[in-house]
Computed example of a mutant assay.
Amino acid sequence: MYKNKKVIFFQHLLIWLVLFSMPYILSYGQDPDINRLIAHFLVPMLFYAIIFYLNFFLLIDKFLFPKKTLRFILINLMAIAFFMFLKELIEDLFFQDLTRKPPGDNTKDGPPIKLFLYVQMISYAAPVLFSIAIKTTKQWMRTEAERKEAINFKLQTELQHLRYQLQPHFFFNSLNNIYSLVDISPEKAKSTIHSLGKLMRYLLYETNTELVPLSKEIEFMRKYIDLMKLRISDKTEVESSFPVADPSIKIAPLLFISLIENAFKHGVSANRESIISIDMTTQKNTVNFTIENHNFPKEDNDKSGSGIGLKNLEKRLQLLYPNKYTFEKELKTGVYRVHLTIETN
């Protein structure tokens, strides 16, 4: 922040140095009239700078942005009138030779007073308009940055919410399945506990970032599918196919897991045969994910599942990958199919 303020200070200083030196640059090699230069350029330029910074640091924040527009205009009109009067006073006191007519000069005094005042008002209003433009632009940039920060914060909150919802659900089911394996197959129970520990580690420590390698997400999904298989009978067949992910492909964490969980929630029946098919492919920086399952609607009083719906996923996709994804879902002849394509770059 301190460094940025120093940069802005030197930017302003450089601009005003260029403006104040323009007459000398344009009249290089000539003999300029110093008195005329001071009276008609340097003094007004100094007043322009005062008006600019008076608005930039005080009046715009205090009156214009809080919608006190009339007061803002009146104060500026008073300031402009004061500096116009002060300029004329300085010319009369210190630069009389510029305003005094030579003897015998019968020409008119100059342009009509109305035109003179109009031109003066325009010239003094310019720094006011410039300060408004710069200040408004800065406020817009700050507002836009805050908006993006709010979106990112909301996104991170949703990801956290997703993770916190996801953990208790399958951890609870997995622990129940592990408990049933302890007496039947102790070795398998040990292996399952080890896999569960890896899932917990991934959820707790590796999904707090904006992006994760796709290979890690695939590993997580494989382990999750293995754990979910423990609670289903032989009547449900689970097919899964994942690519050997390119290490350069990174993706937002936990996007696909709710689709897999949804398939296990609605695609398993205790007395009917069913198939859950999961397929992921990659092409350059595009990830294609398709999942199909037989659809067995749950009863209204069935509270199983994590409660993470497809609307939640769609909302996250809109925030994470605007105009970079397609999300299609259909129910046909008792089979529910979801196809998700994401451009990761």
Results as ranks from 00 to 15, higher is better:
Leu196Val: 05
Val212Gln: 00
Pro186Asp: 07
Ser195Trp: 07
Tyr202Asn: 00
Val182Tyr: 01
Ala189Ile: 01
Leu204Ile: 08
Leu181Asn: 11
Glu210Phe: 13
Leu203Glu: 00
Leu211Ala: 05
Leu181Glu: 13
Leu211Cys: 05
Leu211Tyr: 15
Glu210Lys: 10
Leu203Ile: 03
Val212Pro: 01
His194Ile: 06
Val212Phe: 00
His194Pro: 10
Leu196Glu: 08
Lys188Gln: 08
Pro186Asn: 09
His194Met: 14
Leu203Arg: 02
His194Tyr: 15
Ser180His: 10
His194Ala: 06
Ser191Phe: 06
Pro186Arg: 13
Val182Leu: 06
Glu187Ala: 12
Tyr205Val: 00
Ala189Leu: 02
Pro186His: 08
His194Asp: 12
Thr207Glu: 02
Leu204Gln: 12
Tyr205Gln: 03
Leu199Trp: 00
Ser180Tyr: 11
Thr192Tyr: 13
Thr192Met: 14
His194Glu: 14
Tyr202Glu: 03
Lys188Ser: 04
Tyr205Pro: 08
Tyr205Ile: 04
Ser191Lys: 07
Glu210Ala: 06
Leu211Thr: 05
Leu199Thr: 07
Lys188Cys: 01
Thr192Ser: 12
Tyr205Thr: 03
Glu187Met: 07
Arg201Leu: 08
Ser180Ile: 11
Met200Gly: 08
Lys190Val: 03
Thr192Gly: 00
Tyr202Val: 00
Lys188Arg: 09
Tyr202Pro: 01
Lys190Pro: 06
Lys188Leu: 09
Asn208Ile: 14
Thr209Asn: 12
Ala189His: 03
Pro186Val: 06
Ile178Gly: 04
Thr207Gly: 02
Ala189Thr: 01
Asn177Asp: 13
Glu210Cys: 03
Val182Cys: 02
Leu196Lys: 08
Ala189Lys: 03
Asn208Thr: 15
Leu203Pro: 05
Lys188Val: 04
Gly197Tyr: 14
Pro186Gly: 05
Ala189Gly: 01
Ile184Arg: 15
Tyr202Trp: 06
Asn177Ser: 15
Glu210Trp: 10
Met200His: 03
Glu210Pro: 06
Ile178Ser: 04
Glu210Arg: 07
Lys188Gly: 02
Met200Leu: 10
Glu187Lys: 05
Thr192Leu: 11
Lys190Tyr: 12
Ser185Asn: 15
Ser185Met: 10
Ser195Tyr: 08
Pro186Ala: 12
Lys198Asn: 09
Lys198Pro: 09
Glu187Tyr: 00
Leu211Met: 11
Ile193Asn: 08
Thr207His: 02
Arg201Gly: 02
Tyr179Ala: 11
Thr209Trp: 05
Ile184Trp: 12
Tyr202His: 01
Val182Thr: 03
Ala189Val: 00
Leu196Pro: 03
Val212Leu: 00
Ser195Asp: 15
Glu187Phe: 02
Ser191Trp: 01
Ala189Met: 02
Lys198Val: 01
Asn177Gly: 15
Asp183Arg: 14
Val182Lys: 04
Gly197Ile: 10
Tyr205Ala: 02
Ser191Thr: 11
Lys198His: 06
His194Phe: 15
Ala189Gln: 05
Ile184Gln: 15
Asn177Trp: 10
Gly197Pro: 04
Ile178Cys: 05
Leu211Arg: 12
Thr192His: 11
Leu203Cys: 00
Glu187Val: 13
Asp183Lys: 15
Tyr202Cys: 00
Leu203Val: 00
Glu210Thr: 10
Pro186Trp: 09
